[in-house]
């Protein structure tokens, strides 16, 4: 059963319990967020998706990613207060990750002056501890990462600071990382990430890397794929298919 919420006085349809951020973005509202991904649970870590609740028993500024849509909810997505609070939160994120291009671009757009110079070799130093990598890794069933330690010593990494058994070198953590701070190195021979090296499974036609061997084994077992599923890369599969198609037609 659909419900109605009001975003900047505009009526928008939603499903009960949906993330307000998701509903607003679907309706075309531009709310910034770094730690949000619709595939995983929202934890309101980056605190940039602030909106103002104007209805109900608890009005005020709150994160929208982990706010659930309720019938009749009224929010606004822009006000001097929201801008001020977003700018403050961005300033704090910039102190933690001064070299992050994403943060610096937002800062330039919002008129926030970065207080620290970007470090020469950023890498994991640009982590804003949003734990999106941790959540995505767990959702994929690898469970290789955790937030380790607390306070200023908090970092994201594998258990015991050692290569994680569950890590398959899929690189999903890096692909969702808002500040791209996870260090992954691909050479023709292998991929290195989180202190572990993974050999590639290669395309039998062109020899290009398709997937890491460990990721291949995991995916075939979990998704019940045929053993040869990853033996040919996508572009080669396509050209094979088009040749087959051509041979049928002519």
């Amino acid at each position: 059963m659909a419900i109605r919420i009001f975003i900047d006085e505009q009526e928008v349809k939603a499903e009960p319990g949906e993330s307000v951020l998701m509903v607003a973005r679907r309706a075309g509202f531009d709310i910034p967020a770094l730690c949000y991904h619709e595939a995983v649970e929202s934890i309101g870590a980056c605190r940039l998706c602030l909106v103002e609740v104007r209805s109900g028993a608890r009005p005020g500024i709150s994160t929208s990613c982990n706010m659930k849509a309720e019938d009749g909810l009224r929010i606004s997505t822009d006000s001097p207060e929201i801008r001020r609070d977003r700018a403050t939160n961005l300033e704090l994120l910039l102190l933690r990750a001064p070299g992050s291009p994403v943060l610096r671009e937002l800062a330039a757009r919002w008129g926030v002056r970065p207080r620290l110079q970007p470090p020469p070799d950023a890498g994991i130093a640009n982590c804003i501890l949003c734990e999106l990598c941790v959540r995505v890794c767990a959702a994929l069933g690898h469970n290789a990462l955790a937030a380790v330690g607390r306070g200023e010593k908090k970092r994201v990494g594998p258990a015991f600071g050692k290569p994680a058994e569950g890590c398959v070198g899929c690189g999903a953590c890096l692909s969702v990382c808002p500040t791209r701070c996870i260090v992954m190195k691909d050479t023709p021979a292998a991929r290195t990430i989180w202190g572990q090296s993974f050999e590639f499974h290669r395309c039998q036609v062109c020899g290009q890397p398709v997937i890491t061997e460990k990721h291949r084994a995991f995916a075939i077992a979990k998704r019940g794929l045929p053993e040869d599923y990853y033996d040919v890369c996508e572009p080669c599969k396509q050209s094979q298919a088009s040749q087959r198609f051509a041979s049928v037609v002519w």
Binding site: V148, R150, P158, A159
Partner: peptide
């Protein structure tokens, strides 16, 4: 639960 979860909690406190 995952070793990562256990390690995260053990290092938190």
């Amino acid at each position: 639960i995952s070793q990562a979860q256990v390690f995260g909690v053990a290092t938190f406190y």
